[in-house]
Simulated scan of single mutants.
Amino acid sequence: MRRVVFNQKGGVGKSTITCNLAAISAQQGLRTLVIDLDPQGNSTHYLLGAPGEAQDITLADFFDQTLNFKLNPKATTDFVLASPFERLHVMPSHPQLEELQGKLESRYKIYKLRDALDELADQYDCIYIDTPPALNFYTRSALIAANACLIPFDCDDFSRRALYSLLENVEEIKADHNNKLAVEGIVVNQYQARASLPQKVVQELIEEGLPVLEPYLSSSIKIKESHEQSKPMIHLDARHKLSQEFVALHDTLARKYGV
């Protein structure tokens, strides 16, 4: 299974959701890969404990290689790094991805990520792709390469307005490039159960027939500690309420859609 975590709005928890679900997959015995396509590199820092600039080889090197023909190119596996967590690997981001984007788009390298993941198909049980907060070359590459799309949603009116155009964009890419792509669901993040607005917004989404997933992910200061220590919640405090919500969400996805 290849999952892309995507929302055009920033600050909705894409990297947090990507890394925590991936960490649970790995902990449950699945060979797991995280691909960090966001030049900000939050998933890279979260899982490797250091930013992309500190890595010897990154996705910037992978995409740069697609622009420059070489007689002996590096294999896709050469761009994969082991994380400190068993069975969890990362293709790290780098700020240089921003500079490469225009060249990659103009030379129509939009299918290179899909081809690379096809090469890795036998090596990983599940792949999670973190994306930039924009519908750009990297996000389109991810949606073309993926089987499924998870949409983080943080319960405010701006997120709700953006949600409809996001769903239309996903459907357009499905129609034009990847008929296997499906929206797995909307992940409600930073949910405050005692506040009336989040309850109202989420209930309206459900009434509209949108695929809102349960459980909702609670708002918690513990996640900041998780980020600071570069430890996904399942490794920081497995008994914490938010850790258990991530596990339950992971189990929901596995039960409904496979690993």
Rank of each mutant, 00 (worst) to 15 (best):
V5H: 06
V5S: 10
G11C: 11
G11M: 08
G13N: 05
N20Q: 09
L21G: 02
L21W: 03
A22G: 05
S25P: 02
D36K: 06
D36V: 06
D38V: 01
Q40T: 04
Q40L: 00
G41P: 15
G41Q: 01
H45N: 12
Y46M: 10
D56R: 14
A60D: 04
N68R: 15
N68Q: 09
F69L: 13
T76K: 10
D78F: 03
V80Q: 09
E86H: 06
P92T: 03
Q96N: 09
Q96A: 09
Q96H: 03
Q96T: 04
E98I: 10
E99N: 15
L104N: 04
E105N: 14
S106I: 07
K109C: 11
Y111H: 13
R114M: 08
D122V: 13
Q123L: 14
Y124Q: 03
D125E: 09
C126N: 05
I127V: 13
Y128K: 12
Y128T: 11
D130V: 00
D130P: 10
P133A: 02
A134P: 10
S141H: 09
A142H: 03
A146T: 04
C149I: 12
P152A: 11
D156Y: 10
F158N: 04
R161K: 12
A162K: 07
A162N: 15
L163C: 01
Y164W: 11
S165N: 09
L167C: 06
L167S: 07
L167Q: 10
I173H: 05
N178C: 07
K180W: 05
A182I: 09
V188Y: 11
V188K: 15
A195L: 13
K200F: 01
E207F: 07
E214S: 15
Y216A: 06
S218C: 08
S220R: 15
I223Y: 08
S226R: 14
S230D: 07
L236H: 07
A238C: 00
A238N: 04
R239I: 01
H240I: 05
K241G: 03
L242I: 13
S243D: 00
V247H: 00
V247I: 09
H250P: 00
T252M: 08
V259G: 00
